[in-house]
Amino acid sequence: MSTLKITDLHVSVNTETGPKPILNGINLEINSNETHAIMGPNGSGKSTLAYSLAGHPKYQVTSGSVTLDGEDVLEMSVDERAKAGLFLAMQYPVEVPGVTVTNFLRSAKTAIDGEAPKLRNWTKDLKSAMENLRVDPEFASRNVNEGFSGGEKKRHEILQMEMLKPKFSVLDETDSGLDVDALRIVSEGINRVRESTDVGVLLITHYTRILSYIKPDHVHVIIKGKVAEEGGPELAERLENEGYDRFLQASA
C-alpha cells in the first residue's frame, strides 16, 4: 500500500505583481484504493493544489511537505514525480504540436516503466482502452490535444491514466465542461482504473454531479487555501443542497 501525505502545504503563485499566497497550510493523507473528493468554490486553491503536486513551475511551495511513501515529492522534478507514480489529469490539457497521441503515450509509458512496452500487449491495451472511452481510432494519429473538443481532451486525460497506471491520480475538475454522456464515459473510465489497480484518487471538483458516478470515501472542503471541513460522502450531499455559502460567510 502507498501513502501520499501532504503536510501544512503553503503555496504561492507567481504573478506580475509578485508572489501571491494561495494555499495556506493544507493537510491531507491519502492511501492506495481510496478516493478523496476535494471540493470548494472557485478561487479556493483546488487547482493550485493539483499543479503544486505535479510540480508546475508557476507555483512555489513556500513551506510544508509532500511525501509519497516517505519520499520527498517536492524535491523531485516534474518527470520524476510522474515516474514515482503521480498523475495529474489537467483541467485544461495542453496542445502539443507535432506529437501524435500514439507517440506521446508510448514515450510516456516507456519513461515511466523504464523500458518500452511490449508492442503486442501495448497495442491491444491501448485499443481496448480507446474503445472503452468511445474514442475514435483516428485519434491515435492526431497531435496531442490539437483540435480536440473539450470532451475529447478529458477522455484523452483518462486514457493516459488507464495506460500509465499511476499510484495516485489527481483529477483536476475532470468533470468541467462535460455533458451528461461524456461525464458518464469519463467516470466509467476512472472507475475502471480504480477497480483494476490500487490507484488512490484525489478528485478535485466544484460540483457534486461527478460524485454520483464516482463515490468518494472522504470529502474535503477547501476554502481560502485551507481545509475547512472534512467528512464522508454525506458532506458532499450537504454541499449539493447548501452550496458553499456557509463556509464563505463563516470565513468572511
Partner: peptide
C-alpha cells in the same frame, strides 16, 4: 513553451526527450 514541456514531463517524459519529440514531430 513551458506549458508543452510541463505537460509532457508530467507524464514522465524527461525534458530532453520531450524536446526531441516535439521537434521530430514538427519536422516529420
Amino acid at each position: 513553451d513551458e506549458e508543452h514541456l510541463f505537460y509532457l514531463m508530467s507524464r514522465g517524459i524527461p525534458e530532453d526527450v520531450a524536446r526531441q519529440l516535439v521537434v521530430r514531430g514538427f519536422f516529420n
